[in-house]
Design a protein around this nucleic acid. Structure first.
Lengths: 245, 245
DNA sequence: ACTATAAAAATAATCGATTATCTGTCAAGG
DNA sequence: CCTTGACAGATAATCGATTATTTTTATAGT
């Protein structure tokens, strides 16, 4: 919980926006910056799942000292992306079929619960945010050939799912869902070059969103559950193809 | 996830058991030891909720250098017991009525789900562990007048609840439940000098355990949910008494 | 008096070097 | 041959000092 996070913040053209005043928000200390860079490196698969993280090598790679490096790695432990053992250092959290299935199951439980709660107590602001996130997401194509497109889509997708459940008024629950989303994204970015042809993900998102703002609890939660489940199934098949147990 | 944890480990008389060989398990590095000590200090209320943690003062108090101190604090962030902000340091996570209610709600959702899963796929080993934990717990009195008794009971209680759901085969879920249990315990130790007179907690635990090993899903999950809910209600009243919002 | 600004103190973050621990290798003994 | 133990190299953990940032205090101007 807490800690200066970022990932899919808000608009902002790109850079530090050297214009108005000074937006102090995000990545300040070296440790924070490293956490972001490492998180991205792990989720994108740049750092191989299960591989050991040599501190000295990493120190040189990122041009930093040990203290902030450890600081950054420590944060990724909270995210479940890095594992640690005393005197034996850090390693990128491994991936497995069982892990993917657990993530999918828990997403079905927690995200659906959070959506239900959001529909129960969410306000108009929440509704509006959903429609905005949906629009942004659906206006962005996920082109496998261009990685930068992919990253943008991932960020917007994550944003959409989090916005959907942001009305639930439960910080801890949102935290858990955010973690699961993170973990799940790693699998998608590693194995899903394209979504399976029989799905229209854009429409799935639209249906969920519309059900949510219409407060049709049964409809919306059903659609969300199916959405999560399908993604899980797809990913499972891709994993199987690559022979991962 | 991961990281060398301890809290309510296993038997062990008390000390490091200077007898047989060398049990390398737990608290090795200074950072790990600190994490344990700090965790205990926070849960027990020794470190006041919401208070700032001055690094320099803490460094002198615990007779350590900054590196391991930060290391230890970083781990407690994962536990949700400490909050952090760039350039502004650490503070003990605050407590509030809303927070307690969320913890209770999530425990009802997650622990009950984990129990259901455990009953579905748990093996005989799991059943046996439950009976053992139950017996240990019920043989231990919770005497408010002696703090050391209290700590032992807390450890066994935590152990019981975790054992109950340990058959679910879902590491992430168990991790979440462990966090929630931690957070919840802080409230109990801070505000529940004695359990309310109209409860027989020992019997509640027995009923849950018996239902679990008998694989009576409806009965066991109902009892667990009620158990968690009652604890939440009790704590809420105590908080209200002390004027905490 | 009240705000705004600047200096000073307190505090957090980082660095480079040192110390402790682990891991693999190789030789001696069985 | 296989196991055991000592050594050496690699790696992680810790320290003390330095640098950067924030917070407080003091000062000047209105």
């Amino acid at each position: 919980m807490s800690s200066t996070d970022d990932s899919a913040s808000a608009p902002m053209t790109d850079e530090e926006t050297a214009s108005a005043g000074f937006a102090d928000d995000g990545k300040n200390t070296i440790g924070s910056q490293l956490a972001s860079r490492l998180r991205e490196a792990i989720i994108s698969g740049e750092l191989e799942a299960g591989s050991k993280i040599n501190l000295d090598k990493a120190r040189r790679t990122f041009n930093v000292s040990l203290s902030p490096l450890r600081e950054g790695l420590a944060r990724l432990i909270s995210d479940g992306l890095v594992e640690f053992q005393d005197n034996r250092g850090y390693r990128v959290a491994p991936i497995s079929l069982a892990n993917l299935e657990e993530i999918t199951t828990l997403r079905e439980e927690l995200e659906v619960f959070a959506l239900r709660e959001s529909m129960r107590i969410g306000d108009v602001e929440w509704e509006s945010n959903i429609m905005r996130s949906l629009h942004r997401l659906n206006r962005t194509d996920r082109d496998a050939s261009r990685p930068e497109t992919l990253e943008l889509w991932e960020a917007l997708h994550r944003e959409f799912h989090l916005t959907l459940i942001s009305g639930c008024g439960k910080p801890l629950l949102l935290h858990f869902c955010g973690l699961l989303l993170n973990l799940n994204d790693r699998y998608r970015r590693a194995f899903l070059i394209r979504t399976s042809g029989d799905r229209n993900v854009g429409q799935e998102h639209s249906e969920i969103a519309q059900g949510a703002v219409a407060r049709d609890i049964e409809y919306a939660t059903d659609k969300l559950r199916q959405h999560i489940h399908r993604t899980g199934t797809n990913l499972r098949n891709h994993l199987a193809t690559k022979g991962i147990v």
